[in-house]
Amino acid sequence: MVNMIILAVVFVIGAFIFQVTLSGFSRKVVARIQKRRGPTVFQNFYDIGKLLFKESSISHGFIFDFGIWMALGSTIATLLFMPVGGWALMPKYANIIVIIYLLAVGSLGMAMSAVGSGNPLASIGVSRALTQMFAYELPFVVIAVLIIYLAKSSNILKIIEYQTQNGWNLFSMPIGALVAYISLMGMLGKKPFDTPIAPAEIASGPLVEYSGKYLGFLMIQHEFATFIEVGLFVHLFMGSTSIIGFLIKYIIVYISAVMISSVMARLKIDEVVKFYWRWPLGLAILQAIITLGVRF
C-alpha cells in the first residue's frame, strides 16, 4: 500500500516533469519553424511556478474554485489509471473506457469553472469546446472500439500485449491511425482545431478569467491531459512494453503534432464539425470495414 502511494507520487511527478519539459522543447521547435530562437526548454516550469506562487489571483466564487479542483483532481486521478509502456499502477483497471470518461470529468470541471466566472467569452469557448469534443470523439471511438474488439479487451495492457504479438496497429490499420491522429490534434486543441481557445477571437475563451494559481493549475491540468491523450494514442497504435520505447514514441507523436499545428490556420467551429464528420469519420468507418473484411 505504501509502495503504491510512493509509486503513484513518483509517477505523477515523473509524468509532470517529462511533459512540461517536452512542451518547453516544443515551444523551441515552433520557434525554429518560425525562424525565432524561442524560450528555454524550462520556460514552462518557470511559467507554472510563477503563476502558482503569485500573491494575487482573482476568484469568481465557489464554483470557479471548485471547478478547478475538479479539473485538476480528476485529471490526476485519470493519470493514475494510465499505463506507461507495459507498466501500470493498477494493471487490472487500466481500462480505456474508464480513462476516456474520467478525462471528461476534468473537462467538465474546467468548463464549469470557466462558465462559473460569468464571462460570456468563456461560455462561448466552452460551447465550442463541447461541440469540438462531439466532433472529434466519434471517429476516435470508431477506431478505439475496433482495436478493443481486436484485442478482445478494453484493458490497455491487453491491447499492448496484442500488438506485441500481432505488430503495431499503426501498420495493420494505417487509415485508422491517421484518423486517430487527427482526432488527437482536436483533443490537444492544436491548430487547426484550436477554435475553443481562439486567442485573437474570444480572448482565449475558457481561460479568459484565470490568473495566478488558477491559471497555474489549469496549465498543470493541460499538461497532464496532454500526457494522457498522447499516451493513449501511442498505446493504441504503437504499443510497446518498455517505458523508454514508450517515451520515444511519445516524443515523436507529440512533436510531430506540434510541428503540423504550427503551419496550420484555425477552422471555424462548424467547419470543424463538418470536417470531422466528413473525412475522419468516413475514413474510420472505411478502416473498420477493411479490418473486419480481412478478418472474416
Binding site: 479542483w69 475538479m70 485538476l72 483532481g73 480528476s74 490526476i76 486521478a77 489509471f81 493549475f217
Partner: peptide, 11 residues
C-alpha cells in the same frame, strides 16, 4: 477513491 484522492490533493 482515486478520484477523491486527486480531488482532495488538489484542494
Amino acid at each position: 477513491i482515486i478520484f477523491g484522492i486527486g480531488f482532495i490533493f488538489v484542494t
